[in-house]
């Protein structure tokens, strides 16, 4: 469903993404892990059609996003890490606007928007301006907006940030169910427990390249012996120096 081939993105002399290739089939929940500055957000923004790659291609459902952006984006819902919502729109107006971008309107959209808002406990606030929403409420609204037009693929950058435990649980269920029903979700996260519990496959990215990609079993195999949990695997693959340095700093 998502096919990335030799993707490279350079910012001047800095290479943010360096020739990565991967495929995410239909019905898979795919996790993207990596330390800060690894190139995850850049990769997701290229998949969403916001950034153009320096080289390489991205296909969504077999459609090349550079060659046929509208057809590719029609299949996609994107949730950025720092989402923007129009402050002076109400929650319901915002969902209606996003649905309209995908040519969807009418009673069905109203019904769906109401359901999504109810799911995230926002129904009572649906007619309030977004400027009065808390950080977590905005995050719930932006997640609802990605589902309102029922895309085939959802690309989401750090979905759990700002969510309370209940909303985080709902989101996990929603993602899992959505993937089970044949849709594809690609998400980046720093919460390793979430990735381990939810994702069918996980890619670990560092310095713009994929250090490992596969199921938990694959990752365990690719990490050195003894690593069982994702945190250990992650640290081994991305280097433990930082953790050791931390001890040094605290002991200084």
């Amino acid at each position: 469903m998502i096919k990335i081939t030799n993707l490279t993105k350079r910012y001047g002399s800095f290479t943010a993404v360096n020739g990565i290739s991967l495929e995410v089939p239909r019905g898979e929940l795919f996790g993207f892990l990596g330390p800060n500055g690894a190139g995850k957000t850049t990769t997701l923004r290229i998949i969403a059609g916001i950034l153009r790659p320096t080289s390489g291609t991205v296909e969504i459902g077999g459609v090349n996003i550079a060659e046929n952006p509208i057809a590719a984006k029609a299949k996609l819902g994107y949730i950025p890490d720092r989402p923007f919502i129009y402050e002076k729109l109400t929650g319901a107006e915002f969902l209606r606007f996003v649905a309209g971008l995908y040519d969807q309107e009418g009673p069905q959209i109203e019904h769906r928007a109401r359901e999504l808002l109810a799911l995230f406990d926002l129904e009572d606030r649906r007619d309030e301006l977004v400027e009065s929403y808390s950080h977590g409420m905005r995050q719930k609204l932006i997640i609802s907006s990605a589902f309102v037009h029922r895309p085939e693929v959802i690309v989401v950058d750090e979905p759990m940030v700002g969510l309370d435990p209940k909303a985080a649980r709902i989101l996990k269920d929603l993602f899992r169910e959505y993937a089970n029903r044949g849709h594809t979700i690609m998400m980046s996260t720093h919460t390793l427990e979430v990735a381990q519990a939810m994702c069918d496959r996980i890619a670990i990215m560092q310095g713009g390249v994929l250090r490992a990609c596969g199921t938990m079993a694959d990752l365990r195999a690719s990490a050195t012996s003894g690593a069982t949990g994702l945190e250990e695997i992650f640290l081994r693959l991305t280097g433990e120096n930082a953790a050791r340095a931390l001890v040094d700093v605290l002991d200084a």
Binding site: G61, G62, Y102, I109, A118, R150, R169, D173, E177, G182
Partner: peptide, 27 residues
């Protein structure tokens, strides 16, 4: 918690929409 699970399913089971419902399967 079970209620919430059902809520999630309800949203996902919502009646197909046009034209996105057509986009759900690659027919």
């Amino acid at each position: 918690m079970r209620d919430e699970g059902r809520g999630t399913a309800d949203v996902l089971d919502a009646k197909p929409l046009t034209p996105s419902s057509q986009l759900q399967t690659l027919t």
